[in-house]
Design a protein around this nucleic acid. Structure first.
Length: 303
DNA sequence: CTCCGCTCCTGCCGGC
DNA sequence: TGCCGGCAGGAGCGGA
């Protein structure tokens, strides 16, 4: 599910429950997710205190006091939820588990793969990782030198920082025949974009997704006007999505009463057949397949 | 090196 | 109602 704004929303939701807490026990209910978990995962985290929660691209980084970090990627269907210990009789009134994300109890419990039992100020809580498709993965690594970890070594610029600029994109796109849609999904170029926000950014910039990315660069190597617009669109759509608390699709629903509202603001994603929302355009949102994945776009104003 | 297609896994939805 | 094919937010891999 999650792209960068969703992972950032998860980070902000988990931080109050996790920062400063002691990991009493780590429960691995299976030895692997997408990849094998470190065999000594539990013994390496048990008894350690969580210092802070960070994020890099779509990775959640749980920093421990001993300099290690739990690295977690949610894949397509991963989610975390917090279950606070309740006084006897106080819980389960609504059949709903207090926590960041609501997953019907019983239905998906078999996909609860990792449980961190936390203690802080004498209060116990569980942080549960659930992932039906098991495309997510976790690892343990030293926080120092994390940039050279295989997950991060080749990673490109964050779409939230100044590193992502028209000049950067021009340098990366120059001479490339790859469609701009595919180039934007490449985490080595921009780290954190996924299918939704790539579609949205291309629509905002008025760029045809199948256009060769090199076509957005001028012969002298400088960014063309469309590439400048694309850079702005990426920054803006990601900032707005983070501000809105990400998008909640399907069963990925937050239980603090708020949904991630950004999906109500999609202009083209999952809107095939609907009117293009650009004023005066009059086009109809279309869907095509690129690299085996859906691209939603307006054939009239994206060219 | 680039680029494409395939693959992992489960759940859901729409069509017949 | 039930079955079946298609599709889903990601990304690593092999091969051309």
């Amino acid at each position: 599910m999650p792209e960068l704004p969703e992972v950032e929303t998860v980070r902000r939701g988990l931080a109050p429950a996790m920062e400063g807490a002691l990991i009493r026990r780590a429960e691995l209910r299976r030895p692997d997710l997408r990849f094998p978990l470190p065999p000594d995962f539990a013994e390496r985290v048990e008894g350690r205190r969580i210092v802070s929660l960070k994020r890099r691209a779509k990775y959640l980084i749980i920093a421990l006091e001993d300099g290690q970090a739990i690295l977690a990627h949610l894949g397509m269907s991963g989610s975390f939820r917090v279950e606070e210990a309740q006084p006897a009789g106080a819980a389960e009134e609504e059949g709903q588990t207090p926590g960041l994300f609501y997953i019907p109890r019983g239905k998906d419990a078999r996909h609860d793969h990792v449980v961190l039992h936390l203690e802080r100020d004498g209060q116990m809580a569980q942080v549960v990782y659930n992932d039906p498709r098991r495309f997510g993965f976790m690892d343990l690594a030293e926080l120092t030198g994390l940039d050279s970890h295989p997950f991060f070594r080749t990673m490109g610029e964050e779409p939230t920082g100044n590193g992502l600029s028209p000049a950067y994109l021009a340098a990366r796109f120059k001479g490339k025949a790859q469609p701009v849609k595919a180039a934007l999904l490449d985490q080595r170029v921009i780290a954190g974009l996924g299918n939704i926000y790539v579609c949205e950014a291309l629509w905002r910039a008025g760029i045809q997704p199948a256009l060769a990315s090199g076509q957005l660069v001028r012969a002298d190597g400088r960014p063309g006007a469309k590439l400048v617009a694309l850079n702005t669109a990426i920054h803006q759509v990601i900032a707005e999505a983070i501000e809105a608390g990400g998008s909640s699709l399907r069963d990925h629903i937050r239980t603090d009463g708020t949904l991630g509202y950004f999906q109500h603001r999609f202009s083209v994603y999952d809107r095939e057949g609907q009117h293009c929302p650009r004023p005066g355009c009059g086009g109809t949102v279309a869907r095509m397949v690129q690299g085996g994945r859906s691209t939603f776009f307006c054939p009239v104003c994206q060219r």
